[in-house]
């Protein structure tokens, strides 16, 4: 184990530690209605981004490519972007801090799964050396963050809709606001996911001679895009009430998760050269 790797892992765990502290503070602030603690929660979260970001940059410099080849790199960097996006949303809308109760644990879980997977670095094969890959990956990470916010909002909505709910749930935004946020965040996710797929198509055209080839991984990306499209259609056309809307949002997120993080590591496809 090299010194660099030890430092990278230590920085990762420092980030995770701060995220855990932030999560506890968020829970405390929301459950016990302590708005002052919220500032500490935000500060701990923002501070966590520093060692976590440093770990990602350290590896980037050492392996010579961005965080998009190994499960370890992908999960860790996705979590970093998700925490950043969450904090940016909360800076503008502190009233939404309950979102952190859903988003932060999932981000921490993502880094932890990454840390327990094989960290052995691999070099970038020729087909991945394209500027379009940078767009493809960057937008995928931002869309994951936006969909995660949408998921967080639907989970809070479902909890709030339960007949026997704890009193703190009364303090999270009301059901209609959560419903609107679920759709709005899914909409932003769709913007970034659309660009992700389009950038992938341009890159596929450069690397393999076709913009679309029904390769399993690219097709799953399309399926998840259509899953969100179907969810938004159903909600729009049938004026769905918040509860079914929230369930559909959870279902669309599951399809997205399959497409982005699970199937690429399991299926044989043209993309297999870089997911391992």
């Amino acid at each position: 184990m090299t010194d660099r790797y030890v430092l990278e892992i230590a920085l990762h765990w420092a980030g995770v530690g701060l995220y855990v502290a932030a999560t506890i503070a968020f829970v405390f602030a929301v459950v016990f209605a302590r708005p002052r603690v919220l500032r500490w929660a935000m500060a701990a979260g923002a501070l966590g981004l520093v060692p976590h970001g440093a770990a990602i940059v350290l590896r980037w410099v050492a392996v010579g490519h961005g965080p998009y080849m190994l499960k370890y790199e992908v999960l860790s960097s996705n979590a970093w972007v998700a925490v950043l996006v969450l904090l940016l949303v909360l800076v503008r809308r502190p009233g939404w801090s309950a979102l952190a109760i859903v988003v932060m644990p999932l981000a921490i879980l993502s880094v932890a799964i990454g840390l327990f997977s094989n960290p052995e670095s691999r070099e970038l094969p020729p087909s991945l050396r394209s500027i379009w890959l940078v767009f493809h990956i960057t937008f995928a990470k931002v869309s994951a963050a936006a969909f995660l916010i949408s998921l967080g909002s639907s989970v809070l909505l479902l909890l709030r809709e339960r007949p026997s709910r704890p009193p703190w749930l009364e303090r999270v935004p009301d059901v209609l606001a959560l419903d609107a946020l679920t759709i709005r965040a899914a909409g932003f996710g769709m913007i970034f996911w659309t660009v992700t797929i389009a950038a992938g198509a341009v890159w596929g055209n450069q690397a393999w001679g076709r913009y679309w080839g029904w390769d399993p991984i690219e097709t799953w990306a399309l399926v998840s895009w259509i899953a969100y499209g179907s969810f938004l259609h159903l909600r729009f056309f049938f004026k769905l009430r918040p509860r079914p809307t929230a369930w559909l949002s959870v279902a669309a997120f599951v399809v997205f998760l399959l497409a982005l993080l699970i199937l690429p590591f399991l299926m044989t496809s043209l993309h297999s050269s870089y997911f391992s």
């Binding site: 029904w214 399993p216 991984i217 097709t219 799953w220 399309l222 399926v223 259509i226 899953a227 499209g229 179907s230 259609h233 159903l234 056309f237 049938f238």
Partner: peptide, 23 residues
């Protein structure tokens, strides 16, 4: 609306089959 929703879901389902079974 039901026709459009059906078409979009059918296209998604067909794509999911194409992505899951060897082609």
């Amino acid at each position: 609306p039901a026709v459009i929703a059906g078409e979009v879901v059918a296209f998604g389902a067909a794509s999911a089959i194409a992505a899951s079974l060897p082609q």
